[in-house]
Design a protein around this nucleic acid. Sequence first.
DNA 1: TTACTACTTGGAGTTAACTCCAAGTCAAGG
DNA 2: CCTTGACTTGGAGTTAACTCCAAGTAGTAA
Lengths: 155, 155
Amino acid sequence: MKTYLIGDIAKKMNVTTDTLRYYDKEGLLPFAKRDEAGRRIFTEDDLGYVEVINCLKKSAVPVKKIGQFIEWCMQGDQTLEQRYDFMVKREAALERQIKELETQLAFLRWKKWYYARAKAAKTESVNFKPGTQRSDPALYDHYQKLHPASNKFIE
Amino acid sequence: MKTYLIGDIAKKMNVTTDTLRYYDKEGLLPFAKRDEAGRRIFTEDDLGYVEVINCLKKSAVPVKKIGQFIEWCMQGDQTLEQRYDFMVKREAALERQIKELETQLAFLRWKKWYYARAKAAKTESVNFKPGTQRSDPALYDHYQKLHPASNKFIE
DNA sequence: TTACTACTTGGAGTTAACTCCAAGTCAAGG
DNA sequence: CCTTGACTTGGAGTTAACTCCAAGTAGTAA
């Protein structure tokens, strides 16, 4: 059966071998066996775990929590409930995070428009509320009319 | 004119006053003046900067980069180009990040479905490719037919 | 007036996630 | 057979972003 060394996995995950050894120390790779030379070997089966670790990492799940999940995987069928609950919680957390980022994106786009307008006038003051140094609320209203909320999901 | 102390801003941003003093040390709050007692005072005008800092923080922009942006703000109209470019880059980065998270969310949902199925059977082995310990590719195909890609944007 | 907060500074400590290094082992290619 | 490169361990160092003192001052409410 095809096996992989730590460097192969590093390439797949786009991390360094040092990072993988750190993950191993933290309990993320208990499934890795060793060959006669003491080198970590990964099987085709292990790639499934690697994929999960990668996904959780990219979803900003802390290493310790990933370790907990992998530990459950090692314990077999008695932890199916925990693993399901884990996925439910992560799904909810990620949905929240994406919504949060959508909000920030909308703000960034308003600021981009704001600076485009200031740049065209060669002065930020065209955006100010008369007699102040801060953005005119009427300008934001105007922006919102020009840019009705997009990025709505198809349900 | 209405002014604010550090604690007021902390409440608005939902951070501690220690965190705000750390931000000040890092150059994020150069607009803050001091009262006779040496306390930082924030004006209505400053709230605009606070809002931007908050947005960039939530978008995972490092403190140093936020500091650079605020510095440009302090330099006036000669940096409008940089500030516009900054917003363009941040918009693109955030769009990329959201797309990445959408991908991970899709994976998490598949795994949730996978564990729901395993849980119902009281054993993960119902999901395995016969003769192996890993997920049957045919199962994933099946899942994809049941769950056609949603979360597409309205353009 | 007295107590109670909220603020000030400087600086030390913490945590997560790497990142790097030294010294050594092993295997495959020429 | 020898070199080269990939691996091994243990452990130290780094970075970002806080987080937590201690010691002191200043404004507010009873």
